[in-house]
Design a protein around this nucleic acid. Structure first.
Length: 553
RNA sequence: GGUCCCAUGGUCAAGAGGUUUAAGACGAGACCCUCUCAAGGUCUAAUCCCGGGUUCGAUUCCCGGUGGGAUCACCA
């Protein structure tokens, strides 16, 4: 007769550490009373997902506002899907959004007394816990092959039964320890399964910080907790790590609600108190067929945070936008605080919406414009340069051509109560301000833009007079000069005058301004002409005017 | 399909049985301002999924339906 303990020793002969040892090694944290210990636990399988940024933002905020701890744990138990270097990349991306952990895996190194913070380096810890579970009879080795498992599933499907490894389908559950020993000694491959004592027809009550009380069917699946590669599955790693790292609140996506019964059962079997849980809504998107679905890593570019960074959106814009989804009262708060700094906002679980929001790029752009409009020209230079260096060679060469000139351009109508809100991201900058640069202006210039109802001769005359416009004069005097040019060439000095007696005029001063605008900028829309001319300078302005006059002839 | 979650305008949402002719924001439209654009100002349109119950009264509470989503791996 082989005891469970002997079986455990047979499977893990080298594991001498006990749970008590681990409890001592990772003691309860000494923190202020209501301090929250939260974590972001990404798996290194690619880029930072927008949904992950969303949850990590909440984790980070909650820990900060309670003087707690926010740490990062790398969940790399799936070696097949791991992408080399993505763990470090993830950390860098988080940093872009001002999420800097004080503990845990930091990309190149780790900080903290509760490590290692990379799951693949915690194999020994999991083994201790699993060995314990085997020795108390709550886990057992399973020798079923993939084929056998498929077979079981097929039978269940055809009989319309619940799929999975449970009850009478959990064949290896009924093996005697002698049979187990024989198979192990024979070298048969195996995994370790948790022995569930649950009944699918029982409902368990669980509390969620966002959803409140929820009732779910008890878990009756003998889930795999230890894979044949020697690493635990997510479920087991989660309970082990969050216990020994002393997490107080687990914040994760709503897609995890359905595995909550497993986790509760696992905590219970280990004799550990479960942390609090908060399941945040998933961010959705409407697909080509008009269906709502979770933002997809593969199909949706906006599922990657890098998408916004690559386009040059200010990172605060995404953070703010996501916070409006997280807490419905945030928007009001940030308006009242003039978009300054969201760090002082108090996040609360009560204000988290229960259903997933559709990702709204237009609203994100609104935030981005507000944020960029509030930057000084110097800040804009820094941001633009940083962006250009990594993502936009064309912009980089424009800026480096003359940094002060760039600041002058970007500063047009910026220094005011109500600054311009032209840009939501730096990716659109070259298209928006390119005309200030001679080469691009030349390329874009198109004289067919001129009003065909006005004779070319008249246009040329007007433009020729515009050479004399004095940009050293104040704006109102400058505009008076323009009115004089208008009058002299048969245009009304204002739209009002023109409307009163249309026959008497070719057009009005607005038409004159349009001619000058086209000549100067090569387009029909631009910021205030006076400022455009000021930035271009007298020399470049007359050069452009002359160029257009000669083209008109 | 089973299980769970969710349901107010196009989107994000306030709302906690009666002072709601249902906030606010983004977006849309209109007008004003105006050298165009952006900004700014003023205004407008647009929502309680359906059916039962409870109640004097239901957007609000309960039940059922419908709809949407999530999840059912040796992936996390």
């Amino acid at each position: 007769m082989i005891s469970n303990k002997e079986l455990a020793n047979l499977i893990f002969p080298n594991v001498k550490t006990t749970l008590e040892d681990l409890e001592k090694k990772y003691p309860n944290r000494t923190l202020p009373e209501r301090a929250e210990v939260t974590r972001f636990a990404p798996s290194p399988t690619g880029f930072l997902h927008t949904g992950s940024l969303f949850t990590s933002m909440i984790c980070h905020k909650l820990a900060n506002q309670t003087n707690g701890v926010f740490y990062i744990r790398l969940e790399d138990t799936d070696s097949k899907r791991e992408i080399e270097g993505s763990g470090e990349k993830l950390l860098n991306e988080l940093k872009e959004f001002n999420i800097v952990p004080t503990e845990g895996y930091l990309g190149t190194h780790e900080i903290g007394d509760y490590g290692p913070y990379v799951q693949s380096k915690r194999a020994d810890i999991y083994k201790v816990a699993i060995k314990h579970l085997i020795s108390i009879g709550r886990a057992y080795p399973c020798f079923c092959s993939v084929e056998e498992l498929d077979e079981i599933r097929k039978v269940q499907e055809t009989n319309k039964m619940l799929p999975g490894y449970y009850g009478k389908f959990a064949k290896c559950r009924y093996l005697s320890n002698e049979e187990r020993e024989a198979k192990i000694r024979n070298g048969d491959p195996f995994v370790i399964r948790f022995l569930s004592n649950g009944n699918h027809n029982n409902k368990i009550k669980a509390h969620d910080l966002i959803h409140g009380d929820i009732s779910i069917a008890e878990n009756d699946q003998d889930i795999v907790i230890y894979k044949s590669d020697g690493l635990p599955t997510y479920h087991f790693a989660h309970i082990c790590d969050d216990h020994f790292m002393r997490t107080t609140t687990v914040i994760r996506g709503e897609e995890w609600i359905s595995s909550l019964p497993i986790h509760i059962q696992l905590f219970d079997a280990m004799g550990w108190a479960a942390p609090r849980y908060a399941h945040v809504p998933v961010i959705m998107k409407i697909d080509e067929n008009g269906n709502k679905r979770k933002l997809s890593k593969r199909k949706d570019p906006e599922a990657a945070c890098s998408f916004f960074i690559d386009d040059g959106y200010p990172s605060e814009a995404l953070s703010m936008y996501l916070m409006t989804i997280a807490n419905s009262n945030f928007e009001e708060w940030i308006f009242a605080n003039k978009f300054k700094d969201m760090n002082d906002f108090k996040f609360s679980f009560e204000k988290v919406s229960l259903d997933g929001a559709l990702f709204d790029l237009v609203k994100l752009q609104f935030f981005a414009r507000e944020i960029l409009a509030r930057k000084t020209k110097e800040e804009m230079l820094v941001l633009a340069e940083k962006y250009a260096k990594n993502h936009d060679k064309a912009l980089e060469s424009l800026i480096s051509h003359d940094r002060n000139y760039f600041m002058d351009i970007i500063n047009i109508e910026r220094d005011s109560e109500n600054p311009r809100k032209d840009y939501s991201h730096f990716g659109e900058l070259v298209g928006a301000i390119g005309f200030f640069y001679h080469d691009i202006y030349k390329k874009e210039l198109d004289i067919s833009l001129f009003n065909p109802l006005i004779e070319k001769k008249v246009i040329a005359n007007v433009l020729s007079e515009c050479r004399k416009l004095d940009i050293d004069k104040p704006q109102n005097e400058w505009f008076d000069q323009m009115k004089q040019i208008a009058i002299k060439n048969g245009f009304a000095e204002s739209n009002k005058v023109y409307k009163a007696n249309k026959e008497a005029f070719i057009g009005h001063v607005g038409d004159v301004a349009e001619m000058l605008r086209i000549a100067l900028t090569g387009r029909k829309n631009s910021p205030n002409l006076y400022f455009v001319m000021k930035v271009l300078g007298g020399l470049e302005s007359t050069k452009r005017i002359d160029c257009v006059i000669s083209l008109l002839k």
